[in-house]
Design a protein around this nucleic acid. Structure first.
Length: 264
DNA sequence: GACGATGTTGGCAC
DNA sequence: GGTGCCAACATCGT
């Protein structure tokens, strides 16, 4: 579920609930999603005030006062829910001075971590997909010898894109997913850069894509899935030329594209 | 019931 | 160091 537009939507829905609130308790019952010791994490969080909540690529970062951070990555099926009822897949419960925040995650690919500083794995990510300049995007791409699908998914290239928005951006740019990054001509690089920003911004306006069960922290679904042009439209007609959309495997990920509009 | 696919990414092999 | 493959897990559709 959670790529840049979905994480941005979760953060925006969360901010009015949690900003300025104090953490009274933090309980963890699933060691797999928690980085570090449960008791130590609880000790680090209890009594702290949430100064702000923000998005860092696909990471959600709570900045704490007087010090420290709570970092959450939703993985494939993670959800942060405001005042929800705990269920089978609830792995963390944060009790605030007003309201409760739950972390649910059926597949447990997500991560929760409390730390004094942002972890190394978070700091080494590339620039945000909505903040990177065209010049940097062009320079970084020139160094990449893998296929564009893999490059755009690589969070150390730019952070925030995932499988849906890579396919959608490549389609809008008219570029084939197997094109080697470094070989892309300058005018096509700009097209790809513009397409990436456009699709991400439109998806944020629609509050993200709800493919199966994605919801924001208030339980509201996104609606951008209705505007996908290639993702999961295998066999359906291309909205530009009418050719059937194809699905193939690139970098081990299901990849959707129009064979006519996206030439190699 | 078996099998394959699903929004992510980190560890390991080359 | 760059690149690519596979595994971690639960659920859903064929």
């Amino acid at each position: 579920m959670p790529e840049l537009p979905e994480v941005e939507t979760v953060v925006r829905s969360l901010a009015p609930h949690v900003t300025g609130r104090r953490i009274l308790n933090a309980e963890f019952n699933q060691p797999r999603v928690l980085r570090g010791d449960a008791e130590a994490t609880t000790r680090m969080l209890v009594g702290k005030k949430i100064e702000s909540v923000g998005r860092y690529g696909k990471f959600i970062v709570f900045t704490l006062r007087p010090a420290g951070f709570l970092i959450v990555h939703l993985g494939m099926t993670g959800k942060l829910l405001w005042n929800g009822a705990p269920e089978k897949h609830t792995h963390a419960i944060f009790t605030l001075d007003r309201g409760t925040l739950l972390y649910n995650d059926s597949r447990q690919f997500g991560r929760i971590e409390a730390a004094r500083e942002l972890p190394e794995g978070v700091q080494k990510l590339g620039p945000d997909a909505l903040a990177v300049s065209l010049d940097d995007f062009t320079d970084f791409l020139r160094k990449r010898k893998s296929r564009l699908k893999a490059v755009l998914l690589d969070q150390t290239f730019v952070r925030g894109l995932g499988n849906i928005y890579v396919d959608e951006a490549l389609f809008r740019a008219g570029v084939h997913p197997m094109t080697i990054g470094a070989t892309l001509r300058k005018d096509r690089v700009k097209k790809l850069y513009d397409a990436m920003r456009e699709v991400l911004n439109e998806a944020i306006e629609r509050r993200g894509s709800s493919i199966s069960d994605y919801v924001d922290s208030d339980g509201t679904r996104g609606s951008f899935q209705a505007l996908h042009r290639v993702y999961r439209r295998t066999g359906e007609p291309c909205l530009t030329c009418g050719r059937a959309i194809e699905r193939t495997l690139v970098a081990q990920r299901g990849t959707h594209y129009c064979p006519k509009c996206q030439k190699r």
